[in-house]
Write a protein that binds this DNA or RNA. Structure first.
Length: 194
DNA sequence: CCCTGATTCGC
DNA sequence: GCGAATCAGG
């Protein structure tokens, strides 16, 4: 595991195959493997010739014009393949959180304090979810990120609430944090910047 | 808008 | 071989 250049090691390829056959989406697989984009996963899948999955391979293949392409970025290191942690269903919250959630919420005031100076000097590896975006357990829906924010015993306990990847409990960013050991996500800037 | 996989092609 | 950019579709 001293492979600095991100390569598709046998283990990674095996996991890719397994996950793909299981029907996981490319982005989900990318998040689990870490260090690769969903495009990378799809590209690899095709190269391995195991595309299609269960779909009917009926594609007319329309010749599309590919105008231009931006310059590629540099390479990245490969973190030790620390066995992928099985994301246990994180829907289990403590009694404290439950009690807090049941607390008569004074008013999450839709009339939030407008005109916020927007501080957000977020360090890399962390994201700041605007409080107005966070949700209580009561507002947490299936398609929302379950990343806990704050002290579960506090009435201010919230969940990220951002859109979660389908089939995943977290949003794109938190999925990366949750599933990547110490990852280096190189050009995720596009996905994360937005 | 969000997402999905498919494809092209510069590297 | 790799994967970003792009396309096409749900």
């Amino acid at each position: 595991m001293t492979d600095a250049t991100l390569t598709w090691t046998d283990e990674r390829v095996e996991r890719l195959k397994t996950l793909w056959q299981e029907g996981r989406s490319a982005s989900a697989i990318a998040a689990e493997l870490g260090g690769v984009s969903r495009n990378a996963v799809i590209g690899k899948v095709h190269r391995l010739g195991l595309s299609g999955r269960g779909k009917a391979p009926e594609k007319p293949a329309p010749a599309r014009p590919r105008p231009k392409q931006a310059p590629a970025a540099a390479a990245a290191e490969e973190a030790a393949p620390v066995a992928a942690p099985q994301p246990s269903r994180p829907i289990t919250v403590g009694a404290n959180a439950l009690a807090a959630a049941l607390e008569p919420q004074p008013a999450r005031a839709e009339a939030a304090p407008l005109a916020q100076p927007r501080p957000a000097p977020q360090p890399a590896g962390e994201i700041v979810v605007p409080l107005s975006e966070r949700v209580t357990i009561m507002d947490l829906r299936e398609s929302m990120c379950r990343w806990p924010m704050g002290d579960p015993s506090s009435p201010d306990f919230r969940f990220c609430g951002a859109r979660s990847l389908t089939g995943m409990p977290y949003c794109t960013h938190h999925a990366q944090i949750a599933y990547q050991p110490s990852a280096d996500r190189r050009r995720d800037r596009k996905a994360l910047a937005g």
